[in-house]
Amino acid sequence: MIGVQQKKLAYLMVAPVVIILCSLIGFPLGYAVFLSFTVKHIGVPPQFVGIQNYVELVHSSIFRLTVLNTFIYTFISVLVKVILGVILALILNRIGRGQRALRGVLLLPWVIPTALSALVWWWMYSELFGIINWTLMRTVVPQGIPWLSTPFWARCALIITNVWRGLPFFAITFLAGIIAIPVDLMDAVSIDGAGAIAKVRYVTLPLLAPLLSIVTLFSLVMTAGDFALVHIITHGGPQNTTHLFATLAQQIGFKGGSLGKGAAISLFIVPFLGVSAYLILKFVRKRIV
């Protein structure tokens, strides 16, 4: 039923997207890939050096630490967001009166510009004067927690903030998924005498699985590419233990003027993105077709 005319129309309708993305992303991305194989200083043409930037990065202790940091930060943040997101969604689903208001309230952290919320958290984490330590020192931890001055706690601080910001999106999306599960299916399981936990385990979670994996993979990509949170709260410190690709690239490439190396750092994340993308696409294709 699709004629030549429609095909033409289809191309025409897709054209704007393709044109915009090619000109605004295609060219810059290609240029960045090219830069990563060069030594490029500000104001002079790049010199091609092959994979030298990448080789140097692999040998750099700060960069290796950054890879580890990114892995820890991304993996734990996303894991916690998924678990808490499912729990929060299940709870929200049980709430009748006031669910709309509560949904709104719980979405707040996702709405506020990260640059501003990161500042609040930084202010709250302040070891000597932050409200978190002020409260802890008067209650359960008299000596306070070294939030930003020790690697372990600095990573915790960033993960907590990331979870705070991302949890609403996870919970609301999962809630939508749970609402979509046919009521009669649930009723049928209830008649079979399944308990609440069994219902979640054998009905809700399996049905939620597709949504879970999509959100998880999207979030993996976004978390690994995070910038503002780390930049504002820890600046990559203490002792570089919280640098991510984006913050290190900013320090070396953009502020330090080594554009080639900065591009190489940013692009190092591409294999990671590629694997995620492959997984998402494989999954999503199955659903679309």
Binding site: E127, P146, S149, T150
Partner: peptide, 22 residues
Amino acid sequence: MPKAVFGWTAGGDNNVFMLSGY
């Protein structure tokens, strides 16, 4: 010195350190 100095970041920390009177 307080251990916090190793985590002072965005530049405002030592300001608050002094402004608080501590």
